[in-house]
Structure formats: structure tokens, C-alpha cells
């Protein structure tokens, strides 16, 4: 698992840049229509790599695009061709560079690609409300916040999934209840 404070060792990077990178990865991931698991594994690979190797700012996108390539090979039935990855990175990196980065990344993470994905936990928790599609979709959104926001790095995937589901259920259940009781309670609501 990644080190939650790895940015201290990254002299050329800031958390804000990681946020921008992950936001971009989410966009590419959606464009390629990949599985949610791929995105979570991808970001996990980026963080694990950055936990052990300091890199320059110009290489950050290469790490991101390579992690997405590796993650999609691992998770997807049909992984996109490497040309697509070169294209989305605006031709900033050559095929050779990406393949080399792929070997390096796999080496650094010790070829360990089995990441306990928050999506696995969400699937299990969803059983509790009979796979209600509304709470589930909202929960997925909430859980994905843990990708763009670095403060979630120290929490395990299972607790993040539980928190997403919990908050989602609170949001959905509020319907008829909020107008009568919640808006009138001037005390602090439990969060």
C-alpha cells in the first residue's frame, strides 16, 4: 500500500499535481469506457510507484498513462491498444518510452497488481440495501473522491467503501424526513 505522506520525498511534485493527474486519468478512463476497477488499480499503482521513486514533474503524466495501461491489461477483457495511450498523452511520450516505463513500474511495485479494490467492498455492502441503484451510484461518486483527494490515502479501501455507502444512504434517506426534523434541528448534525 502507498505511503500516505510520500509527497515529502517528491521534491519536484506537490499534492495538487497529483490531483490534476488523477482528474485527467478519470477523464481518459471515461473516454475509453473502462471498468471502475481499472481506475482504482491505476491510481493505486501511481501512488505506490511515487511512494518509492522520486520523479520529475515532466514524468508524472508518463507514470499516470503507464499505470492506466498496466491496470487495463490486468482488469479489462479488452484492453485499449497502446496507440490510444500515446494519443491521449498528446504524443508527449513514444511507444518505446511507455513500454520502458511499464517494465520499470512493474518492477517497482514488485509485479503485485492484486489491490483490494473499494469496488469489491461496495459490491458486498450493496447487498445490504438490495443493490439499490441510486445509493450505489451516489456511493460510487463519493468513493471516487478518495482518488482525487490525497487525504484519503491513509484509509483502507474497505473503510472508504463503507463511508461512501453510509453517506450515500444518508443523502438518499433524507427525502420526507429533512423538511420536518433536520432543518429544524439547530444543533449540530452528526457527521
Amino acid at each position: 500500500m502507498p505511503n500516505p505522506s510520500y509527497m515529502k520525498q517528491q521534491i519536484n511534485l506537490e499534492w495538487r499535481m497529483r490531483g490534476i493527474l488523477v482528474d485527467w486519468l478519470i477523464e481518459v478512463h471515461a473516454k475509453f469506457r473502462l471498468l471502475p476497477e481499472t481506475l482504482f488499480l491505476c491510481v493505486n499503482l501511481v501512488d505506490r510507484f511515487l511512494s518509492s521513486r522520486p520523479i520529475g514533474m515532466e514524468k508524472l503524466q508518463l507514470v499516470g498513462v503507464t499505470a492506466l495501461l498496466v491496470a487495463s491489461k490486468y482488469e479489462e477483457v479488452m484492453a485499449p491498444n497502446i496507440d490510444n495511450f500515446i494519443y491521449v498523452a498528446d504524443g508527449g511520450y513514444t511507444e518505446h518510452e511507455i513500454l520502458k516505463a511499464e517494465r520499470y513500474l512493474l518492477h517497482i511495485v514488485g509485479f503485485d497488481l492484486s489491490y483490494p479494490n473499494p469496488m469489491n467492498f461496495l459490491r458486498r455492502i450493496s447487498k445490504a440495501d438490495d443493490y439499490d441503484i441510486h445509493t450505489r451510484t451516489i456511493a460510487k461518486y463519493l468513493i471516487e473522491i478518495s482518488l482525487v483527494d490525497d487525504r484519503f490515502l491513509k484509509y483502507t479501501p474497505s473503510i472508504i467503501a463503507a463511508a461512501g455507502m453510509y453517506l450515500s444512504r444518508r443523502m438518499m434517506d433524507r427525502g420526507p424526513w429533512v423538511s420536518s426534523s433536520s432543518s429544524q434541528s439547530n444543533g449540530r448534525r452528526p457527521i
Binding site: 473503510i159 463503507a162 455507502m165 453517506l167
Partner: peptide, 14 residues
């Protein structure tokens, strides 16, 4: 419910 966590545990994440 099914997650195995208490409300107290997930509160900081929420």
C-alpha cells in the same frame, strides 16, 4: 450493515 465497520470508525472518512 454489511461492511463490518461501526459508525464511529467511518466518521473521519465521511
Amino acid at each position: 450493515h454489511y461492511s463490518g465497520y461501526s459508525t464511529l470508525e467511518i466518521r473521519p472518512v465521511v
